[in-house]
Design a protein around this nucleic acid. Sequence first.
RNA 1: CGAGGUGUAGUGUAACGGCUAACAUUCCUGUUUUGGGAACAGGCGACUCCGGGUUCGAAUCCCGGCACCUCGACCA
Length: 414
Amino acid sequence: MKQSLLFTKTQRESPSDEVSLNAELLIKAGYVYKEMSGVYSFLPLGLRVLKKIEGIIREEMNRIGGTEMKTSIFQSKDVWDKTGRWDDSVVDIWFKTKLKNGGDLGLSFTNEEAYANILKQHINSYKDLPAYPYDFKEIFRNEARSKSGILRGREFFWKALYSFSKDEEEHNIFYEKAKEAYKNIFKRVGIGHLTYLTFASGGTFSKYSHEFQTLTGAGEDTIYLDENRGLAINKEIYDEEELKFLGLKKEDLIEKKSIEVGNIFSLGTKFTEPFNLIYKDKDGREKLVIMGSYGIGLGRLMGTVVEVLSDDKGIIWPESIAPFKIHLLSLGKDEKVLQEAENLYKELTQKGIEVLYDDREDVSAGEKFADSDLMGIPFRVIISNRTVTEGGYELKKRTEEKERIVKREELFKL
RNA sequence: CGAGGUGUAGUGUAACGGCUAACAUUCCUGUUUUGGGAACAGGCGACUCCGGGUUCGAAUCCCGGCACCUCGACCA
């Protein structure tokens, strides 16, 4: 993409109504626009990052047998009455409205009931199981207070997968696979080294759920971490008894602030029972389906990466989720420079390499550098009078201080 | 929802109860410039969050509302 066609503009000053680092940088660099508290629009650059994250999650979900679909954001009262979760005294974060004919309508705040209801139409036999449907979707929660930029919003984009299994054993096998898939996801988006499997409250059907907590001061959770074992326990359930049960020693644990970037949960028959979601086993006996849920907030994940991987100049995207791989800058308006930059842009683009080409002719070098640092694209390639004279291109990684001259072969090898 | 704070051009800030609401940046025009947010000149851009009140006079004081931020409560 040519930067002259990118309508978004960087800002020098931080917005006065944002304190959190992720929002500050994403707004300054033109990735997101704040509509209202807890509600952000994703601009072209922001959407590209979100799509990259989506792609990684999709690959990992498909690899463990996930089948993607798209469920509606609109939810009917009837479905949610089955579990009692339509009731405002049970769930107070619904956004609800009325249809023209007076009927009730709610906007999805989670998906368990919707999935159980849909699967009810299709699951009859043990031959139909297991099933691992999932979707990417907007979720709406009327939070009393949103905070921390895009880390906790009233509208957010998530991936939710629900597992439907014949029995506990089959469920547990998938649950472990999901755990590994989640580890892969966080590793691939660049925060694996700071993300820990964390034991958290499990509810009625299992002793624990598992959260994936990324260490950052911007987080709203407190965990007790055993760094050597790579395990943590959420403060919510932290006590002597739990520690003993998990085999964790108090003296090995350190208290850390963290943000929950994902969670996986065994639901047992909590949602299948109200929907009478049953199947016939080999002997013709009816059994309730065992369910599990697996969620990741994509916007939160994106914000967490910014929190954890930025410096005083701006964002530092990992290659895997950067909006572009290369930021190509032309300096000055010398004909030769512009021509060479244009050629390189075309060539790289034709090879399928994502390039943001800063082709603005009337912008000073310093401003281009500052913009580039702020946006955080992994590789910067500069074409200027200097490089034209010397031959080759100037290459600098966002994570490195010094640039170096590379020949075209070397660049294309990258 | 409880507590505290803040609302002024697109953005960031300033202005004693008193002149045409100022400065920087962005943007536009022109000249000059091009390796770390360049220089000069000129210009556009604000019902000072909304509604009411006090006052000869309100961005400024008072009341009510709304919005935003922070702490807490809440939070699969």
